[in-house]
């Protein structure tokens, strides 16, 4: 049982990881992440990379929606900006992939700022509609512009580093996972700064925030820029992962997916974005194993259970919203508390 955490400085109080147990577990997690590609099959590596990309994008949206309180349904569109930028740069200029990723993310951030301008006047559902409009415009642009390959999209070569081609889940893992970790760590640190606290103040009451001296325009647009930067970077990683970018790669439903991920995970917590994105990516895949296990008993379980699986997934989301509105992060917090207090109960 943990009986208390003594902090003797402000620095310790603000630390991201405040106990030695936490730091130890983090080291174990990092070791696990390093060992994972050597023991996992390409299928699990593929899913790990996909989860990481979704975590990166969901974390970006969490900064905007969860921390700044600006609802956006444009996350997939911002991802498409990053993905197309990376694809065009890789095909036309063949510039280094890290540079491409950064340019793609920066471009998405610029677009994000433009889309975010209405956020000064509109909030909530109205802002969500404005971001949908931006998504539609971007979709139209990408599907009609010869540079972006019009309706057929772009097929791009893989990323390469000093002639070493990064095209398999094993190698892509070493690109995607570290970038995502840095992004998540960056987001967590951002929230300990003046900028992060300004975001939270705006979310909790924007008028009060302005009275406190927080320039709303600057911080709202900063939030949009950072969130879109994250989406653009995630989109760039997505492009290197799949190597085909078409206007149909980032439909509106993907934006809803990311919004659902942060709601299920827990809005306004970094862990929530991670857990939500992992949950939304992995659960539909894990549910497929039920059909695999039943196939020896019932040969056509795959076809028969396919619609059931969709219903179960939907049911799980609704269940979480009803029984734990604060999301998976809150459940995780309760589990941790249980272990901290064991053998006593709360």
């Amino acid at each position: 049982m943990r009986i208390g955490t003594l902090k003797t400085s402000y620095g310790a109080d603000e630390a991201l990881f405040d106990s030695s147990v936490q730091r130890g577990l983090l080291v174990l997690l990092a070791l696990g992440a390093v060992a994972f590609p050597f023991v996992a099959s390409p299928y699990w590596l593929f899913l790990a990379c996909l989860c990481a990309i979704n975590v990166a994008s969901a974390t970006g949206l969490n900064l905007l929606t969860g921390y700044t309180g600006l609802v956006s349904l444009g996350q997939a569109a911002f991802m498409s900006v990053g993905a197309y930028a990376v694809a065009v740069l890789e095909i036309r200029l063949g510039t280094p992939f890290l540079l491409n990723l950064l340019i793609g993310a920066a471009l998405a951030a610029v677009i994000g700022i433009l889309v975010g301008i209405p956020s000064l006047r509109v909030k909530g559902l109205y802002l969500a509609i404005a971001t949908i409009a931006a998504s539609v415009i971007l979709h139209f642009l990408f599907s009609h512009w010869s540079l972006t390959g019009e309706a057929r999209g772009l097929s791009m070569p893989p990323a390469s580093l000093f002639g070493y081609v990064i095209d398999q889940p094993f190698t892509l893992y070493w690109l995607i996972m570290p970038v995502t970790c840095l992004m998540v760590l960056g987001a967590a640190n951002l929230l300990r700064t003046r900028i992060g606290r300004a975001f939270i103040a705006i979310r909790d009451r924007d008028i009060s925030a302005e009275v406190l001296g927080i320039p709303l325009l600057r911080y709202k647009l900063t939030s949009f820029a950072i969130s879109s930067f994250y989406a653009g970077l995630a989109g760039g990683l997505w492009a290197y992962f799949f190597r085909v970018v078409t206007p149909e790669s980032f439909p509106l439903v993907n934006s809803i997916f990311y919004l659902a991920a942060i709601i299920v995970g827990g809005m306004g917590t970094i862990l929530g974005g991670i857990l939500g994105a992992v949950f939304m990516t992995l659960v539909p895949e894990l549910l497929k194993f039920a059909a695999n296990w039943l196939t020896p008993i019932y040969p056509d379980a795959l076809a028969a259970l396919a619609p059931v699986r969709t219903i179960v997934f939907g049911g799980l989301i609704v269940g979480f919203l009803i029984f734990e509105p604060r999301g998976l992060a809150e459940i995780w917090r309760r589990v941790r508390r249980f272990f901290h207090l064991w053998p006593f109960r709360t």
Binding site: S41, P42, Y43, L45, F46, L47, L50, P169, F242, V244, S249, P284, E285, K288, A291, L302, A306, R309, T310
Partner: peptide, 14 residues
């Protein structure tokens, strides 16, 4: 099953 999504199709392939 892929639900007609490219990422799920690639996951199934893998």
């Amino acid at each position: 099953d892929t639900a007609y999504k490219v990422d799920a199709s690639v996951a199934a392939f893998n």
